[in-house]
Amino acid sequence: MKTIKELEEIRKKTLDVVNQRKDRTTTRIVVGMATCGIAAGARPVLLAIMDEVSKLGLSDVIVAQTGCIGLCRLEPIVEVIKPGEEKVTYIKMTPEKARRIVKEHVVEGKVVDEYVMHVVDGKVLNDYSVQND
């Protein structure tokens, strides 16, 4: 059984982390959670990211969710915002792809190019669903 005592232990261990987060610029990983995102599988993607961040002990990463990103047919969408870098938008995520992004982009700093949304002249280039329509 889970006890509140355990929670107090966790709190003691993480107190430093909370303080660190306050005065350090952190990486944000944001998952879109509008109806379309949820229907397309955004919740397992979000949970996989939380699990990976927790497993790797990444204390300087904030996982967040947001309502609508405005690109329903490309959902689930994950955005990675690193301090001082441009935002990277990943599309059509799965839990496995999202775990890779945490490991390769967030930790090692290598953008996972094959999942990134590419926009040229206002058009999404790797939007396969539109080409198939």
């Binding site: 107090e8 709190r11 909370v18 939380m50 699990d51 927790s54 996982v63």
Partner: peptide, 14 residues
């Protein structure tokens, strides 16, 4: 019990 910030991954895991 643990203060206002519940958003840490291991707290949410718990």
């Amino acid at each position: 019990v643990i203060g206002e910030d519940l958003t840490l991954p291991n707290i949410l895991q718990w």
